[in-house]
Design a protein around this nucleic acid. Structure first.
Lengths: 233, 233
DNA sequence: TCGCTCTGTTAATGGTCGTAACTATGCATT
DNA sequence: AATGCATAGTTACGACCATTAACAGAGCGA
């Protein structure tokens, strides 16, 4: 029971630690002053390090930011998954939990949320790799919607046959081939609606709390869920 | 009929011309390379001018960008207004025209559209002044919805009484005191839904045309219009 | 014509990203 | 234990940017 040769060397451990500190300090700067304030120099200052040292970890400022975006997507996706995972309630209620977690994360981390949809300098076509965690959350949402739909026997198609086919292909791309066009539509509707509301809420469109965005969201989600099970479109 | 003393002096004329050129060159840079590429130095180079000269027109880079944002809001609002103004069709069709104009402008000027909702460095709480042109477009939308609603006699309230009251206050703030909660909800729904779809479309979420966003929009607008005249919520 | 104002210029400061050249430490091998 | 390479840090530097200061010439009212 004496010391086994450590799996990670001292150097690896220190490197991982510094890497983590870069992430943490970066988020701290972003959260308090915005992305534009995240400069390599400012970051190094906050870490009491020289600026060029940062380049041992990230090849450029843009690469650092791209990494932080990826992390943020993961955090958001995790927040949604956890909100649903801990609940044994009906799928319908879990959809509401998932959506609430989305808004909650966005409000708690407004700057990071803004970062996700901001145009970045490097921007290699939306950075497909970064979005994969969100795709997982989306798959989760689809599963919930399919479950809801299974309990109600309703039409599975939308009113638009071309769109139906596109939705089927999209569902397959999301690794949810069993999703009906209706379920896929509902997923996309929920996703785009909440993004629209939250995004505009953050810009202060709603006059700073004359309108409670949560009530709008409830209305919109209810409507989307209704469109899932009602016979008519 | 000889020369009247010109209303604007030569100097004023030249200044206005240079001002205009700054706006045009700025947009050209933004449209091709993104906002991050719009530096005072680059702008001055494009205009064959010295960089400090720009400061005779704008006190800072941030101020310049803020001005361009205001201009963009105006352009977007104008595009929507023109789309509707030229038509004698029914209100329902004009709502679709207005929405199509919104998406159209966003797709034609993706970078400017992104700029509108991006967090800016100066960001004085969403820059209320910049949004006023959009408020006008919103008022226009509300008018169309009220017109639709008047032809159908339906319930004027949403299912949420607190929200109803908030909507009434909001409608008054938009200088549309005659808007019913239902009409106001529909306006906000249309506005947030289209923003959500277009915004996500621009980030490439829909896998680059496996899903045609226009079909989604049609679906969503139809649904919002239906919620305006149906009896049940 | 004179003098003020306005619009442009060049020069300079301080901050940024990123590279080069150097140093010290961890660590594997002898 | 001694040696030597890869790694993670350092300082010095070049290019670019935002912004200010100091200055020069054109427009324009008196």
């Amino acid at each position: 029971m004496t010391d086994q040769p450590p799996v990670v060397s001292r150097r690896e451990r220190l490197r991982a630690q510094t890497f983590q500190e870069i992430e943490d300090s970066s988020f701290a700067i972003i959260d308090t002053d915005g992305v534009h304030a995240l400069t390599i120099a400012a970051l190094a200052r906050a870490m009491a390090m020289s600026a060029p040292a940062v380049y041992r970890y990230f090849p450029s400022r843009d690469a650092l930011i791209a990494h932080l975006v990826t992390l943020s997507y993961q955090q958001l996706a995790t927040a949604m998954q956890e909100a649903v995972a801990g609940s044994r309630r009906a799928p319908r209620a879990r959809v509401r939990l998932l959506v609430a977690a989305y808004r909650d994360w966005a409000l708690r981390h407004r700057r990071r949320y803004g970062m996700l949809f901001a145009e970045r300098a490097d921007d290699a076509r939306g950075q497909a790799a970064a979005r994969t965690p969100l795709d997982q959350a989306m798959a989760l949402l689809i599963d919930l919607l399919v479950a809801i739909q299974d309990t109600a026997s309703a039409d599975r198609r939308t009113g638009d046959r071309a769109l139906d086919e596109q939705l089927r292909r999209w569902a397959r791309a999301q690794e949810r081939p069993d999703a009906t066009p209706r379920a896929a539509t509902a997923a996309i509707r929920i996703w785009t609606r909440i993004h629209g509301i939250v995004s505009l809420e953050l810009t202060g469109i709603f006059d700073n709390r004359t309108i409670e965005a949560q009530r709008l969201i409830d209305l919109e989600i209810d409507d989307a869920l209704a469109s899932l099970t009602t016979t008519a479109v």
